[in-house]
Write a protein that binds this DNA or RNA. Structure first.
Length: 257
DNA sequence: ATGGCACGCATGGCGTGA
């Protein structure tokens, strides 16, 4: 099973890139974030020729998640179900072949003294509770998406400059680690523990890609029984170099199941 | 030290992203 994740930064703007990537790499599942489109406007027709089943939930302008799959999901769950705001434009769980696949677009947080940052930290706590409620660390499950956290110093260019950045600040890294510690392992790190590989390069510094000044903030996580079956994983930088790119690129993994 | 680019939209500027 091959599964990929991609923050598209508008699925409508990125249709050519998404369609080409599906055609070339033929993943079983592709999780998209920041689709930036409400459901009534989702470009279903444009994606139909790909042959993928498409599960999506979005809102106007911001956020939005979609999961494309070769096989139709057996079940679909939108957002949190803890009685608070479901935030269903950021959390999507589908079951495919008996395996839960959780697609998340974790809040970015703006600035560390912003209420948005407190919301991000709380979001990670809610997500751990969600895992406890719906999953088991002893059975196969995947959690992937834009986590908006660079977990290790090597996961961001110039970490010393970003200690107060919401994607590297200690509290954000701790929140991410404590959620993953429920029972998810980063399969890219498992395969390449010492390799520096970013998944995001800022648009605003036009040289960021050429200078490789990026962040590794998109992650592919698996519970132990699945992580041990991960045979390949990689980041495909090519779509970031394409015309009209997203600021993120694709991360994928293959499991021998 | 600062800002830079891209996207969507009750669009000639703003909120958001990271």
């Amino acid at each position: 099973m091959k599964i990929a994740t991609f923050n598209a930064n508008s699925v409508r703007k990125r249709l050519p890139i998404v369609l080409a990537w599906l055609e070339q790499h033929k993943p079983d599942v592709l999780c998209l974030q920041e689709t930036k489109v409400q459901d009534s406007e989702f470009p279903l027709l444009a994606l139909t020729p790909s042959g993928y089943h498409i599960t999506f939930r979005g809102m106007k302008s911001y956020n939005g998640v979609a999961t494309l799959s070769r096989h139709k999901p057996e079940a679909v769950f939108y957002g949190f179900d803890d009685g608070e705001e479901p935030d269903d434009s950021r959390l999507l769980r589908v079951i495919i072949g008996g395996i839960p696949i959780i697609n998340t677009y974790v809040p970015q947080g703006f600035e560390i003294d912003s209420p948005k940052y407190a919301y991000k930290l709380a979001w990670y706590k809610r997500l751990r509770t969600y895992f406890e409620k719906h999953l088991s660390p002893q059975t196969p499950a995947i959690w992937c998406g834009d986590m908006n956290v660079a977990p290790r110093p090597m996961d961001v260019h110039g970490p010393e400059k970003h200690l107060n950045h919401v994607c590297y600040h200690e509290a954000a890294r701790k929140a991410y680690e404590q959620t993953a510690a429920w029972g998810f392992e980063d399969v890219f790190v498992k395969l390449y523990p010492t390799r520096q590989q970013f998944t995001f390069w800022d648009y605003r510094a036009p040289s960021s890609l050429a200078a490789n000044k990026g962040w590794r903030i998109d992650h592919m996580m698996a519970t132990a029984p699945l992580a041990e079956k991960c045979v390949k994983a990689d980041v495909d930088v090519e779509p970031r170099r394409a015309k009209d790119p997203s600021d993120h690129t694709f991360l994928w993994a293959e499991f021998s199941i």
